[in-house]
Design a binder for these strands. Structure first.
Lengths: 152, 152
DNA sequence: AGCTATTATGCATAAATATGAAAGGCTCGT
DNA sequence: ACGAGCCTTTCATATTTATGCATAATAGCT
């Protein structure tokens, strides 16, 4: 179906946090050859229960719904604790070793969080590579992950 | 100061989930003899990083920021697990027995979550009483609490 | 107190978002 | 293939939210 595909794109766009208004979605989707109006986006946003968050930097940006984010985080924390083996970082990269078989699941959970620090994620059988958007972003990210690992 | 007091009221109003637009805040604050315009509310909302959430029931309502909610939930879970003794429920009430001294802390954490099922919360030294908004709301709430207790 | 700088608010309005109504598509049963 | 019922989308527009600018309030000086 068309609607679902579009909404998948919208999800993907979420983490590139320059999305301040619905028209931005319209513009970005056009670049992907998906042609919609703001009205449709408004309804998609309602469907998907996205929220417009006042960001610390003064602007606004759209983001995942609270509940879903919380649920995902729980799964993420559990998976991390279950499967975590070791951890290394260099430059804008974070490399996590996990028990065999857990890489893909962990990677996709991290993606699902739509952290706006994360440029991309990539998981093979026993390794997850996370690429931060910047050096600072990567440091933040490390902290987030460590917090997740150390209970809270 | 005036602004902070108003924002405290706004926080309190949050959990009474009939708040669909900023004008609702204006109206409700007037009932408390706090006289402001929608413009101010808009700025408060930005300050406090509140979000307008598309609710499952089709409308919209304002709610706590994601991050804060997540942090509070972590503390809540920890406190629950630490201090939990026993649990009883009847009608729209949930009564939680906790280790002496932990009642007030737990109650205020529950308040801070701004669950929209909750009508009110009340904590003495070793007991917390939660009053749900309705029977269904109370059942939901129980589930939420049980989920919190059983790890996740 | 008086003066200045900073912050907060209201007004008016621009900007952004939501939505009714009409139109187009899709699915299914006949 | 046709039509009924159901979604989905757009257009036009109403509603809601954000903000520039002017003013008022507050806090800090001296």
């Amino acid at each position: 179906m068309k609607k679902q595909e579009r909404q998948r794109y919208i999800k993907r766009l979420l983490s590139s946090n320059e999305i301040e208004r619905q028209e931005d979605f319209v513009r970005l989707l056009r670049a992907e050859d998906i042609d919609v109006t703001q009205a449709t986006i408004s309804r998609d946003i309602k469907d998907m229960q996205l929220v417009k968050v006042p960001s610390v930097t003064g602007g606004y940006h759209y983001s995942m719904p609270v509940q879903k984010k919380m649920d995902t985080e729980k799964k993420l924390r559990r998976t991390l604790k279950d499967a975590y083996v070791s951890y290394a970082t260099q430059d804008k990269f974070v490399l996590i070793k996990v028990l065999p078989g857990n890489g893909p699941a962990l990677a996709s959970l991290i993606e699902a969080m739509h952290y706006d620090n994360v440029f991309g994620t990539l998981g093979d059988d026993d390794t997850v590579l996370i690429i931060g958007k910047s050096l600072d972003a990567t440091l933040d990210l490390q902290q987030t992950l460590q917090r997740l690992l150390s209970d809270n």
